[in-house]
Design a binder for these strands. Structure first.
Length: 967
RNA sequence: GCGAGGGUGGCGGAAUUGGCAGACGCGCUAGCCUUAGGAGCUAGUGCCUUCGGGCGUGCGGGUUCGAGUCCCGCCCUUCGCACCA
């Protein structure tokens, strides 16, 4: 570059100049009546919580780049923006500041819009919506009523977290570490009538239709699948001795013969009835403790399983064994039937519980490997036992305290006979694995029933004497180190010890047992989901009121559609209140009978607001309808939806549910709301933590990474940006120092968009430097450009020129594909950088071709303009054009410009790169010609001197691989 | 524990279909320029080297003319779910 000083890149002036140009030009207004070339791009709308940091910016910058790109490609692109404006943080902030949540929300929205403007991020602002606006929540209420009419909204008693200090109900997310997030008091369970949406009715469709979502990330689909948590199995009816039916759900009906006890959730309805007089007090105490602790502190995953015997018994329908009924908090009332049959031999939790409480553990499923192992204490047999076993070709090994014999399933019996023969009269041994048995000198007792278990324990106790203290056969076995890992397995295998079902193959066992249960009316095939109905009631102020009226005479009456919206009462906000606390709000008249009635005082979960907003954007101002069917049917499903992975489950699942419900009601003609989903990674940044003073702002931190208060060395963990960790970067500071274009460029360049990335000051500087180079280069080139209609003629270019010309076209193709098909903005940016580098080198030539310069410079500006729109506008005018790059259209590439005349082909000899040959393109494309050219190359010839060529492989346009043998 | 990602120079990352590993950027080194700046320009920059070459994409095997990429077995790490019967 020449040394004379040129005009500097004045990003402040440039960004100020073009800041409103797109809005004024109406470039992003779209007519939703359009039916051709339409594209619905949607970013998840934000919660207006103060201000957006550079991490939030990533999401919207990606959207803005894509929108500008599609716009240049001639699409009618719909890219709207709105505000998920209801919710708890607004109430909390309002409480702290003594203002109304609406005031706080409105202020934040205004500030966020100003941030978008500074970022150069444009939307069709005529479509702005805010969920706290009556014109919006009126239709949220309409949605509620539609679901209600369909029987998909209903009310039932449910337990919520109630904070006795704040005197209010807490949402789950307000309970942090088992305490109220505001005051730290542990919440109490409280049972209230609550509204639910019957999402479970759609569980199967929500699960099955995931397969149709081909352009969703696999991880998100998997998360939804896990969340829905479908398990297939059977319900089995156990009769209690008092005559009640106790229904359990199991995924392993084939293990029924191994069910040696039952466990109920402490809250189970039958607990009171079942508990015997002697056990009642203990049961009640355990249950009360469980109810209090269950939801509060689940964090200790590895806590011991506890439980209490109810005193009652049930009958195992498979073998009529009498089995005890326990209660334990490891069984959850919220899953299945709240009761289980415990099969301790094949369920890890049941195994631990049974060992702890001395309940029998009976193996009923064979191990897949069908191996067995016997342990023979040395005191139980004579001195020549080892020799005898060897003579019988058994694999015997001497271990501490005795011998271990490993057998395959077909020689277990032989080993057992041998051991029995060798036993002293008071000795005993055991075998586990494919066969479980205890061996005595006068009998071999299979460990296959509770009675056998008792007999084994009694015999062992007798033989062992006072030191014996095991309660079950399994407990004896767990004390033998050689058996570690062999006593328990949860695999599917052949049934054993299961009466006439013994020997049933594992792959058929479940079906065969289920069929038998159904035939004998002892149970049936059943499916259980982890997914629960969606609790939408919030006892809060800042949300959409539930449009239901309770009349003493008529009962539950929906508010007639003509009376919507049910407005939030416009009262001074006093904090910590729900609608129930507002005098007069609930008083109304019954729409049916006209008598006195009460309004429902719950508001809706904000996920209801966001479960349908993507529909409202199509006709945001329609006063008569939530949306227009014909229009939404055209524009939806959303072509591209982009947001944070933190919404992978709830928001996306609720939206899918609502769409399916609306489809069933005939309101929309599609079953899935979002055709393509992309989840962007988070932006991380170093945080500073003092062990004593907590999180510190970077600017507080003194030199040497020490705490300014106590001089202690600080920890520097690396976290996604969050206010609480004080590691956010404010975009206004970046924009002020290097400009929005630099921030946009850096945000895209720093890494693949689906991965978490670290914000770095050095990276910002590099991006800023690049834009300065682009600026200088274009300013430098401007007087040397051919007129703006000129295009380069490749025939007249020299080698350097032709190379640049090819680079221009290759770059257009790469950037187009990277943006549109691959969502790979970082590589698109690096391609633009490479073009800039080449252009800079070419520009150093005095005789640079003016038409080529024109083509290269124009192209560079155009493909950079979606990423750096301010600079794009400025430079486009500078090089002599009128209007915005947005009006020009995305540049096209020439296919004939993609390939060079001469291609350099690497040559490998025995897998190692040994030479490169330059060949004409038509030679490189032909395997035989390419092979010949490589072999004729002097360098290759020299390397082949004196060796024998065994094989030559030529891959057209790629490489030549030679296999040789040294003499 | 279950599920899904990820592991490549000093750092962020690239390699799209099994075909030249390290594009692009940061940092660093040397030089130039300069009324000195956290500026700009030029060159270099994976490691080792006896200057022939050798080694190199978490580790160990395998397939192949050829493996960052495919297969088998491990290790580490991030995220999500987690007593789900």
């Amino acid at each position: 570059m020449t040394a004379h000083s040129i005009e500097p890149y004045d990003f402040r002036a440039i960004e100020t100049r073009w800041r409103d140009t797109w809005r004024k030009g109406g470039y992003f207004h779209v007519d939703t009546k359009a039916r051709e070339n339409t594209f619905y791009y949607l970013n998840m709308f934000p919660y207006p919580s103060g201000y957006l940091h550079v991490g939030h910016g990533r999401n919207y910058i990606i959207g803005d780049v894509l929108t500008r790109f599609y716009r240049m490609r001639g699409y009618h692109i719909l890219n709207p923006m709105g505000w998920d404006a209801f919710g708890l943080p607004a109430e909390n902030a309002a409480i702290d500041r003594g203002i109304h949540p609406r005031e706080w929300t409105v202020k934040n929205i205004a500030h966020a819009k100003e941030q978008f403007r500074a970022w150069g991020i444009e939307y069709d602002w005529d479509r702005e919506i805010s969920t706290c606006d009556p014109d919006y929540y009126r239709w949220t209420q309409w949605l509620f009523l539609e679901l209600y009419k369909k029987g998909l909204a209903y009310r039932k008693l449910a337990t919520v977290n109630y904070c006795p200090q704040c005197k209010t109900v807490l949402a789950n997310e307000q309970v942090v570490g088992g305490a109220c997030e505001r005051c730290g008091t542990p919440p109490e369970p409280k049972t209230l009538e609550q509204w639910f949406f019957k999402i479970t009715e759609y569980a199967d469709r929500l699960l099955d239709d995931l397969a149709k979502l081909e352009s969703w990330p696999e991880s998100v689909k998997k998360m939804q699948e896990n969340w829905i948590g479908k398990s297939e199995g059977a319900e089995v009816v156990f009769k209690t001795e008092k005559g009640d039916d106790l229904v359990v759900f199991t995924t392993r009906p084939d293990t029924l013969w191994g069910a040696t006890f039952m466990v109920l959730a402490p809250e189970h309805a039958l607990v009171d009835k079942l508990a015997t007089k002697e056990q009642k007090a203990e049961v009640a105490a355990y249950r009360d403790r469980a109810i209090r602790t269950s939801d509060i502190d689940r964090l200790s995953t590895e806590r011991d399983k506890t439980g209490v015997f109810t005193g009652a018994y049930a009958v195992n329908p498979a073998n009529n064994e009498r089995i005890p009924i326990w209660i334990a908090d490891y069984v959850l009332m919220s899953y299945g039937t709240g009761a289980i049959m415990a099969v301790p031999a094949h369920d890890e939790r049941d195994f631990a519980f049974a060992l702890r409480y001395g309940l029998p553990i009976l193996p009923v499923i064979e191990r897949l490997d069908r191996r067995a192992r016997a342990f023979v204490p040395s005191s139980a047999v004579g001195g020549d036992f080892e020799k005898v076993a060897r003579a019988d070709e058994l694999s015997i090994e001497s271990v501490a305290g005795g011998f271990v014999i490993d057998c395959a399933w077909d020689n277990v019996n032989r080993a057992v006979r041998l051991i029995q023969t060798a036993l002293e009269p008071n000795g005993w041994a055991s075998v586990v694995g494919t066969r479980f048995a205890f061996i005595f000198h006068d009998a071999v007792i299979a460990h296959d029933s509770a009675a056998a278990d008792r007999e084994i324990v009694a015999r062992c106790a007798l033989l062992t004497g006072a030191t014996f203290n095991a309660r079950t056969a399994m407990e004896i076995l767990t004390k033998i180190p050689a058996y570690e890992g062999l006593l328990f397995h949860a695999g599917v295998g052949t049934m054993q010890h299961s009466g006439r079902f013994s020997g049933t193959r594992g792959d058929q066992a479940k079906d065969i047992v289920t069929a038998w249960l159904e035939k004998g009316q002892k149970g049936k095939k059943a499916i259980t989901y982890r997914l629960h109905d969606w609790l939408i009631s919030r006892q809060r102020y800042w949300g959409a009121p539930i449009p239901i009226i309770n009349c003493k005479k008529c009962g539950e009456v929906p508010v007639p559609e003509k009376d919507l919206p049910v407005l939030l009462p416009d009262v001074a906000f006093i904090g910590k209140m729900g609608l129930a606390d507002i005098p007069g709000y609930a008083d109304t008249t019954c729409p049916k009978c006209g008598g006195k009635a009460k309004r429902d005082t719950d508001t809706m979960d904000t996920f209801v607001d966001s479960s349908w907003y993507y529909l409202r954007f199509i006709n945001p101002h329609d006063a008569r309808r939530a949306f227009v069917r014909d229009d939404v049917d055209h524009w939806l499903p959303v072509n591209q939806y982009v947001g944070g992975v933190e919404h992978a489950i709830l928001h996306l699942l609720y939206s899918r549910f609502v769409t399916k419900a609306l489809f069933d009601m005939g309101h929309v003609g599609f079953e899935e709301p979002f055709a393509r989903l992309f989840t962007q990674g988070m932006v991380c940044h170093t945080a500073y933590k003092c062990p004593e003073h907590g999180w510190l702002y970077p600017k507080e931190v003194a030199d040497g990474n020490r705490c300014p208060h106590c001089q202690k060395p600080l920890e520097n963990p690396y976290f996604s940006m969050s206010k609480s960790k004080k590691n956010v970067v404010d975009p206004s500071e970046i924009i002020d120092r290097v400009g929005a274009d630099t921030e946009r460029l850096y945000t895209l360049f720093m890494g693949p968009p689906d991965r978490d990335i670290e914000w770095s000051e050095e990276g910002i500087r590099g991006s800023f430097r690049f834009l300065n180079r682009v600026w200088a280069l274009v300013v430098e080139a401007t007087p040397r450009l051919a007129p703006r209609t000129a295009a380069a003629d490749p025939a007249t270019l020299d080698a350097d020129g032709a190379a640049l010309w090819r680079r221009v076209h290759r770059t257009v193709r790469k950037v187009s594909e990277d943006i549109q098909d691959r969502f790979s903005f970082n590589t698109a940016v690096s391609a633009i950088m490479e073009l800039t580098n080449d252009l800079g080198r070419y520009l150093e030539r005095e005789d640079a071709d003016p038409a080529l310069l024109r083509e290269a410079v124009d192209t560079l500006i155009l493909i950079l303009s979606p990423i750096c729109p301010f600079l794009g506008e400025e430079l486009w005018r500078r090089v002599g054009h009128e209007g915005s790059p947005l009006e020009v259209g995305w540049p096209r590439y020439r296919v004939d410009a993609l390939a060079a005349d001469t291609i350099e082909i690497p040559v490998q000899i025995n897998g190692k790169l040994r030479a490169k040959v330059a060949v004409p393109a038509e030679v490189a494309a032909d395997a035989e010609a390419l092979k010949a050219a490589a072999l004729a190359d002097p360098e290759v010839k020299a390397k082949l001197e004196g060796v024998e060529l065994l094989k030559a492989i030529a891959v057209p346009n790629k490489m030549v691989s030679l296999v040789v043998k040294a003499p």
